[in-house]
Design a binder for these strands. Structure first.
Length: 432
DNA sequence: TGAAATGTTGGGGCG
DNA sequence: ACGCCCCAACATTTC
């Protein structure tokens, strides 16, 4: 049986500028492309019509079609990765497996187990950096420790850029690169226990004009001046190198957002416990009120604060919330309602198409004041002032809360002045 | 990638 | 002309 090189797609659902694929192709052996719908990952999606599964499934189908254009196919499996590989070992004479690095705690454990299994059998598991420009241990302080403050991290990050860090990993794809086979059977969404979502997905296009105007328009939620590329960065349907090249040319502010992404990934790697606990531990002393009814009002966009409600309804209806509004809604949950940031983090994880654990945890801890380099706890957004500043004509609010200013619209759930003081008191008490 | 409280200044009304 | 008060506008400090 001829030797087979497997390329395992995970969060890199594209053929272009894909580092591990590039290295696999350079071997000049026929590659068998593989994708696994991982039981354990699927279990993290309780909603059976979760839009992210629809998206992944769509992209996998798309990759399969593209590969079939090369006289090959994409082997799509449903199972536990370790079991899938165990079985594949029997069906094919696998010489090596190629994949890109994946950094979340679950993925790290999964890859460790797969690597052990493969190497027991003499199969080499080659992995590469692909989804970031600099990974966890590439940007460190002089003493070799990780940064916990954003600004010096970002300076070092920018200073470390050189031509080849942003270079495309590009080769001309040929039929001879891929394992020749008839199309493999398709796995439908239903086969893996899901239904198609009706949500629509932003295009995987880098809009240079938008990035050029990013700083000017990003804070106006009615304008949609943000890129909406988070989903594509999450699943690798665009290349981070390509995006950083554009950001570098057109907008330092936008580039800064991409650096925050890597900053939080680096933080989650070095401090995985920060997904569960306050990064600054004394903030775990806060006595959260955690009132179920209030949480429900927040989730459903019925707090009586238009900016908060508009954001939550946008999230519920589209799987997206404008960045400025994420801060306002997040601050409201944590400070006004004194509800544990982890509740908010969990809700966003369920709803956001662009959900990324590192960014979600990092930004929730930022808004709660408990993170590394977080907003100081006494910085409490006034949702009405924020509305005046960033939605002066109430265009965004009216779009998502059409009954605003009518009798149907709920009364304000809490009194701003009162609960602001309550939050200050509780925080001060907790961290003293 | 705030907001509120407090302090300061200066103009205008008025006795 | 002067002191006094009010208050808006801006600056600083506090949370």
């Amino acid at each position: 049986m001829a030797e087979t090189v497997i390329f395992w797609f995970r969060r890199d659902l594209r053929l272009e500028d894909n580092t591990a694929l590039f290295h696999a192709l350079k071997r000049n052996e026929r590659i068998l492309p593989l994708f696994i719908f991982d039981f354990e990952i699927l279990d993290k999606f309780p909603a059976k019509n979760d839009a992210r599964l629809t998206f992944i499934h769509q992209q996998v189908q798309h990759l399969k079609k593209s590969l079939e254009g090369f006289g090959s196919s994409l082997l799509v499996k449903h199972g536990k990765p370790i079991e899938v590989f165990r079985k594949l070992k029997k069906d094919y004479n696998i010489s090596s497996v190629y994949a890109n690095h994946d950094y979340e705690p679950y993925a790290v454990a999964r890859d460790k187990a797969v690597k052990e299994l493969l190497e027991q059998e003499g199969v080499k598991f080659h992995t590469y950096k692909d989804q970031v420009i600099f990974e966890k241990d590439e940007i460190l302080k002089k003493d070799g420790k990780p940064y916990t403050v954003y600004t010096p991290y970002s300076k070092k990050w920018i200073a470390s850029l050189s031509g080849d860090t942003l270079e495309m990993r590009e080769v001309l794809l040929l039929k001879t690169h891929f394992f020749k086979c008839d199309p493999f059977p398709e796995i439908s969404l239903e086969d893996i226990g899901f239904r198609k979502s009706s949500l629509s997905f932003p295009p995987a296009e880098i809009d240079r004009e938008l990035i050029r105007n990013y700083e000017r328009y990003r804070d106006i939620p009615a304008l949609d001046g943000t890129s909406r590329l988070g989903l594509h960065l999450r699943f690798g349907t665009i290349s981070i190198r390509k995006l950083v090249r554009v950001a570098k040319e057109f907008s330092d502010t936008f580039l800064g957002e991409l650096i925050w992404r890597e900053f939080f990934m680096m933080i989650l790697w070095h401090f995985p416990e920060s997904a569960e606990h306050a990064f600054k531990r004394k903030y775990d002393n806060i006595s959260w009120r955690n009132k179920e009814k209030e949480f429900e009002a927040w989730c459903n966009g019925r707090t009586g604060y238009p900016m908060v409600d508009a954001g939550m309804r946008q999230l519920n209806e589209t799987g997206f919330m404008h960045n400025r509004v994420r801060m306002i809604a997040g601050s409201f949950l944590v400070k006004h309602l004194l509800i544990d940031w982890r509740w908010g983090e969990t809700y966003f994880a369920e709803k956001l198409l662009d959900y990324e654990q590192a960014s979600n945890v990092g930004n929730w801890q930022w808004v709660a004041g408990s993170g590394c380099d977080a907003a100081p706890y006494f910085r409490i957004f006034n949702p009405l002032t924020q509305q005046q500043k960033f939605d002066r004509d109430n265009e965004y609010v009216r779009r998502w809360v059409p009954e605003w200013n009518t009798e149907q619209y709920p009364e304000m759930l809490v009194n701003h002045k009162e609960v602001r003081e309550r939050a200050l008191k509780e925080y001060k008490q907790a961290i003293k």
